[in-house]
Design a protein around this nucleic acid. Structure first.
Length: 360
DNA sequence: AAGCCGGGGGT
DNA sequence: ACCCCAGGCTT
């Protein structure tokens, strides 16, 4: 009798031997775990939190050097809380998603000033911190405190979709709810941090989006997608969006070794970061551009501008093209939203502007 | 529910 | 060229 109940059971956790899944995964992890800088037998919640903020939508290889630099500059939450915002942003420059850097600093202050420097050890407590959602809270709680909280990131989504043959779109809220449910169901009572990290390692190194290495997978025998030859169609491809074009004219204004920077708004693209003065091109003349984005004091002493070669920069949702002009002037006093930066310093600039600067 | 927010590793 | 990455937040 093919009742709805029976059909539901077919791809429900009931079909998988959960204790066996746990044993297989932890045994695999003991032999094959990645050696990552933030891993430790005695985890420091601050270091775990720091790594998780950096790892949001960012691969481990990209994070590693930033993580090392942050931990050296700010060995504990009090050091980070005491740092000027500009220093934190400058160290984050190049990593993208700059809102994370603001949240990082805000959270450090909250923990240092209101929580005696101690990170919460519950999912609810952690989720009150800016930039910490359900995934990050579960990851920090389980890894730093061995609390048995589930996680669901891109890796775990993919692994669970395949093992339990969840065929629906990964972005469907219903599917996400189902996957959270499974993640909570399979997490063991012990070694929860290891278990969660093992799921992510498996997704990153074995259960990959393309050409998964099913022959070396600890779930080879129990994975429904593998048993039915469905690993190519689970999870289904998401529809991708076309980046929109953004044409900017940027100015490189120098004054004996310094370059003129402007501070961006606290929200939106490159939030709170610094930029080379720029504006949407829209057919503007160079005089119009200067009028639009330069303080009057600069314009007065600015020599003739020369055109440099253009720069192209790709974002996930934007395709940015820069026209670049270069000129020099006196090192005059500036409004607060501008600053003179030494051209040879590590500048608090997003990659796009680093690229423009290195091109001239 | 959908859009926004960066940059890069891997293929 | 195209996939997606230890997601969170706003509208």
């Amino acid at each position: 009798m093919a009742t709805a109940q029976n059909r539901k059971q077919k791809s429900a956790p009931g079909e998988i031997d959960i204790p066996q899944l746990r044993r297989r995964l932890l045994r695999w992890y003991d032999r094959n775990r990645r050696d990552l800088p933030w891993r430790s037998d005695n985890p420091d919640p601050y270091a775990v939190w720091l790594s998780e903020m950096m790892l949001q939508q960012t691969q481990t290889a990209t994070v590693a050097p930033y993580y090392a630099a942050f931990l050296q500059a700010y060995p504990d939450v009090f050091a980070l809380a005491a740092a000027p915002r500009g220093d934190v942003l400058a160290m984050w420059a190049g990593q993208g998603y700059y809102r994370r850097a603001h949240n990082l600093h805000d959270t450090a202050k909250i923990v240092a000033e209101e929580l005696d420097g101690v990170f919460p050890n519950t999912v609810d407590g952690l989720m009150k911190l800016p930039g910490v959602g359900r995934y990050s809270a579960g990851a920090i709680a389980s890894i730093a405190y061995d609390v048995c909280a589930p996680i669901l990131d891109g890796n775990v989504k993919r692994v669970l979709s395949r093992v339990f043959a969840i065929e629906q779109s990964q972005s469907d809220p219903q599917t996400i709810a189902t996957l959270w449910g499974i993640s909570g169901k399979i997490i063991p009572r012990k070694r929860c941090g290891d278990f969660n990290q093992a799921m992510m390692d498996l997704g990153a190194t074995v259960c990959t989006p393309k050409v998964p290495k099913c022959d070396t997978c600890p779930f080879k025998k129990i994975c429904i997608a593998n048993n039915r030859g469905l690993t190519d169609v689970i999870p289904p491809a998401r529809q991708r969006r076309i980046p929109t074009r953004l044409d900017l004219t940027a100015l490189v204004v120098e004054a004996n070794g310094y370059v003129l920077l402007h501070r961006r708004a606290d929200s939106g693209l490159w939030a709170g970061m610094w930029e080379l003065p720029n504006v949407e091109a829209n057919g503007k003349s160079i005089d119009d551009v200067c009028e639009a984005i330069l303080p009057a004091t600069i314009r007065k002493s600015l020599g003739k501008l020369s055109k440099s070669r253009g720069v192209q920069h790709q974002l996930t949702h934007r395709s940015v093209r820069f026209k670049v002009f270069r000129g020099s002037c006196k090192k005059v006093r500036l409004p607060k939203t501008f600053q003179w930066a030494r051209a040879d310093d590590t500048l608090p600039l997003p990659k796009a502007f680093q690229k423009v600067l290195s091109a001239v």
